[in-house]
Design a protein around this nucleic acid. Structure first.
Lengths: 340, 340
DNA sequence: GCATGAGGTCCCTTGTAGGAA
DNA sequence: TTTCCTACAAGGGACCTCATG
């Protein structure tokens, strides 16, 4: 690989002059510039970015570490992040944690060694990872919160989304609403539970609804829902707090041959991916949709702003609104007349 | 950020000694090692990988450049690639091209400056990108072919998949099969057309089926299918050669209120993502499924093998088999009795 | 003031050569 | 001789100072 030295020799100038040509700084005569550019062509010279990185202590590289790039939710976040990074002159290194704390710490450490300028990551626990804490590397959390306010964070309004969905069910007349939720140590699950509870309080109900905590797992959700359908009286509506859980619920409902929404109403967080047009799905699902692409985009923008020293002392929590899309999976409860 | 120099000063030894402690090479007394390790702790020292990268001309970083990380096909490829890279001690920088030649070249050039060790990319045209050709940077193409055999490549068996699907339709009795295909300058589209033609030849039919070339676009596929349904006699089966096209076909069929497979049979390349369990979809689709995760994994393994100098003169074309999953969207043609 | 060259320093780490105990 | 450690160069580039036309 040709280096700046080779170009200098070939064009008969000093290294500094080549540097001046490339960076477009300082005085360079037209003739010299021509000769240098010719040498660059002939040698197929590509400037080595490691030099400047070493010099400026900047690699123009960010790390994006999330549970799993496969799937529409984190996939779209990644795309939003990559687009923003690209626009701002950065590149993105990707890491998948599969929700493992250990894997997350591994990535953080290795990528810190590689001198990435900052991290965008989805927390796998409530704690700020040690590596970041110890080494004061800039970062932005996405999707989930950590138990420290002095961080930059971008996430969707889980509380609001859950509140709206629940309010929607309540307004339709539902009282026995079951919530199939994620793990208790993940902030999005807690927030969605909080939104449900708030909606019940706002409606003046004395008792909060039953909330089932587990993993973000389709099969656990399926099992739980099957069990739930045997209780008497049966819930008139089920709220699944993410995509995976929702699928488990749907499967169980389908198998029980219940009609939606005539026998039971369903609402969920995160939309069904649009690959299969919704026209194919009966019923069409009422959901809260998170602005995934925006989450990724805003996270990178926030991180880059911090890297460039804006608002050095302030921490930003960006909470993006979710869209409530009311479709056909939610309707009046079957026992409305009995209930009231 | 503390550097090796700071550690050396703090522990009262030379830089090289610190290096020996870190890399576990050469002679270091137990006492010196202890002192150095203490200093590393106290200073929160993280070795800067830019140093070794400069020295060894290796960054342990690969680039993955594909059309769009969003969506199940490239998403799974990315995951397979990242897992393999991680296992082999590499990291992955991600780029999205949106099928643009220009964006692809941009990424290649910028990432070459960053000294990535090699590229895995999805070609956006039949030509090997200039940057790679000129600078002899190792690379592996995935999914699509380029018009040069002297490259490493990993892809699924499009010809075979299309052959099998078509054969399946022919065996069911179909003769008027329409193929909704991608652009003529993308190898996967050509290969799938070739597979269809080969199946017709194998069956001893004099005429090949009608193949409609366009973009990988849902809406174009939708338009084309609507038009197609007005022809007399109507095709008895449609083969959509990728996911997007398939969705367009399905939409058009749905709107025309045709029954599948009673009125018309449908087969497609790439499965519908499993987020919505197939139990929800009527009918269940007959498809050729590509081993996406494997494609990504094998591509990175192949690239790393080349980087490490194995088989320096040989080029590997890895063609992975596709799974034909026969479900309910394909059946006997409605006019079977008339036709025969 | 303009245009360049020469030379050095810095960024960080590693490998080699060689000195000292 | 063996063990332990230091000094130096190299790797690629940016930038700065001086000096010289």
């Amino acid at each position: 690989m040709a280096s700046i030295k080779d170009v200098a020799r070939r064009s008969g100038v000093a290294r500094a002059t080549v540097s001046r040509v490339i960076t477009n700084r300082g005085y360079v005569s037209a003739e010299t510039r021509r000769r240098v550019e010719a040498a660059i062509q002939e040698l197929n010279y590509i400037p080595n970015a490691l030099g400047p990185s070493l010099h400026f202590k900047r690699t123009q590289t960010l790390a994006l570490v999330l549970p799993d790039i496969t799937g529409p939710f984190f996939g779209a976040i990644a795309r939003g992040a990559e687009d923003a990074a690209n626009r701002l002159g950065y590149h993105i290194i990707l890491g998948n944690t599969d929700e493992s704390d250990e894997k997350l710490e591994d990535y953080l450490l290795f990528l810190a060694k590689k001198q990435v300028d900052g991290f965008v990551f989805v927390p796998t626990s409530q704690d700020v990872p040690k590596t970041l804490q110890k080494h004061r590397i800039p970062f932005v959390t996405v999707d989930r919160q950590v138990n420290d306010d002095r961080v930059d964070a971008v996430r969707a309004d889980s509380v609001g989304g859950a509140f709206q969905l629940t309010k929607h069910l309540i307004e339709l007349g539902h009282r026995r609403i079951a919530v199939i939720n994620g793990p208790q140590d993940v902030s999005t699950a807690c927030d969605r539970a909080a939104g449900v509870i708030r909606a019940f309080e706002a409606a003046g109900f004395p008792e909060p609804p039953e909330i089932f905590w587990s993993e973000w797992s389709e099969s656990l959700s399926y099992d739980r829902t099957k069990q739930l359908l045997t209780t008497v009286p049966r819930p008139t509506a089920i709220f699944a707090t993410n995509n995976n859980l929702f699928v488990g619920v749907i499967r169980a409902i389908w198998e029980a041959k219940l009609r939606v929404p005539e026998d039971i109403s369903l609402v969920g967080f995160d939309d069904i991916p649009p690959v299969v047009p919704s026209v194919l799905m009966e019923p069409l699902f009422t959901v809260a949709v998170q602005p995934t692409y925006e989450i990724g985009r805003r996270a990178v923008e926030l991180l880059v702003a911090r890297l460039e020293g804006k608002d050095a002392d302030e921490y930003h929590h960006i909470i993006l609104p979710v869209d409530i899309i009311v479709r056909k999976s939610s309707g009046k409860p079957p026992d409305m007349n009995l209930d009231n």
